[in-house]
Amino acid sequence: MIQSINRRLWALLIAAVLTLTACASTPGASATAGSSPSVNISGSSTVQPISEAVAERFNEDNPGTAITVDGPGTGDGFELFCAGETDISDASRAIKEEETAACQEAGIEYVELKVAIDGLSVLTSTENTGVECLTFADLYALIGPESTGLNNWNDAEALAQELGSTTDLPDAELSITGPGEESGTYDSFVELVFGDIAEERGQEEATRPDYTSSANDNAIIEGISGSPTSLGWVGFAFAEENAEVVREIAVDGGEGCVEPTPETISSGEYPIARDLYIYVNKAKMAENDALVAYVDYYLAEGVIDSVLEEVPYVPLADETLEESRSTWEGAKAGE
């Protein structure tokens, strides 16, 4: 009995070691693994669902192309992109100067293409009846760099009025939840809402440091719904998905209160909206036909429109999409 068990045990061990060596020797044999057509996409987690849905549809017609879509965030995406690791970088904001510089240093040229629009919703709990509409001045007074330490809505009123707002802010506890600094949603919000006021007042373009931040949008929604007089902001898509637990506040960017809806965002009426982009590596276009075919498909008639029916972002106005198409055609002709 002992003998037979221990034979088996040793046979097992030897088999394991053999497989191990066999395994170690295969990499050399398949070093050319990347030979099948492939497209590598990374970047904004906001744009990720669009690129994913396009990739899926593209794969239905072109099952031979391997496509990877990741969503670590716009900044991380550009880092990979400018290191030449990805073919396309999804972005929820335009590329920053220092990122452009990094790309130039690495000798990477790119084409910038707008693909959709995303609104940012300012949210409160569904139980909060005290607030209907907020101006940029109110938001600056509540969340901006000068609001550090405030924990009652009413305490922000003085600064808001100084900035020209007439909104009545309720005497209620203020608890703020929003995305953290690493997020493109944070950057867009700060730039669009605080940009002008902060510059005028000589303040840093940032939020107050003392609010609850999370990289997980569901956690933000949970934070906002968790307190009856909360305040926060998140992408329009997330807000619409969670309309049962959080309420969108209308925003006044200087031309009256506007509720965020697909129509007001697309037309530019709603003041906190941003463009969503894809950046395509030009050098990779030249050597990778699958990449060109994928972007062709991305911008083809009707593709994004049908994708945006499933993925809750807002389509570009027709002329803007047409602009993206001609930029793309130009980039292809330039090669």
């Binding site: 099948s36 057509p37 492939s38 987690s45 990720q48 690129s51 994913e52 990739a55 899926e56 794969n59 099952p63 031979g64 192309t65 391997a66 496509i67 990877t68 879509v69 990741d70 969503g71 670590p72």
Partner: peptide
């Protein structure tokens, strides 16, 4: 973390 297909 997102979508991927392996092609051929």
């Amino acid at each position: 973390s997102g979508y991927f297909s392996t092609g051929n």
